[in-house]
Structures are given as structure tokens and as C-alpha cells.
Amino acid sequence: MTTTSVTRDDVLHLAQLASLQLTDDEVDALQADIGNILGYVAQLDELDTEGVEPTYQVTDLENVWRDDAVRLSNVGRQELLALAPDSHKNQIKVPKVL
């Protein structure tokens, strides 16, 4: 099986893009796994796709519209706020942003 070379810095950059704070062991394991998986999927290079349109979705639906109208949800504000790990005065509370 072929592997694609992925550096440790590549993994750390991806982790940053994906908002994952990985442990060192996880970085090592992912470096190897990502290389192997990219090596496997690289076989698509063999295919001639010149002039082929990409497929992004497989329904035959197009432009499904709905009325631009307010619909009442059957879930209330308090129920949704109660799901948040932390809230204060009807708002979701988070740590300092800046």
C-alpha cells in the first residue's frame, strides 16, 4: 500500500483548522493514519476525468423553496437554553473571547 507523506506540522495545522487540541500521542497516530488513508485514495489519480462534471448531490430535486414565513417551533426558548452547558439571564455564557 502506498502512503502519502504528511509531516507533523501538517497534522498540527489541520488540527488547528479543525479546532482539535490533540495530545502528542494523537498527533503521532494521526500522522501515520492520514498518510495511509491519503495513500489509499490517491488511486483516483489513475482516472481520466477531463471534461467530467462533479456530482455534489444525488437527488433530482432543484431549488426547493418554502414560504418566507415565521413558523412557531414546538421547542421553547427555556428548553433550548437548558441544553447549554452554561447560561446566564436567558443567554448562553462562554469564556472570555478577547
Binding site: 479546532s19 482539535l20 487540541q21 452547558p85 448562553i92 469564556p95
Partner: peptide
């Protein structure tokens, strides 16, 4: 880790995202 699900302890927002997801 903001609106629902479990949130990890962190002092800033980036830390909340990263640690909760990890």
C-alpha cells in the same frame, strides 16, 4: 461545546472549542 453537549474547562474560547472537541 457552546450551545449543547459537554463543554471542557478552559479559560478562553479557543480552548473551549479545542478541548471539548478533543
Amino acid at each position: 461545546g457552546i450551545r449543547y453537549g459537554n463543554r471542557a474547562d478552559a479559560t478562553d474560547l479557543t480552548g473551549v472549542y479545542g478541548k471539548s472537541r478533543d
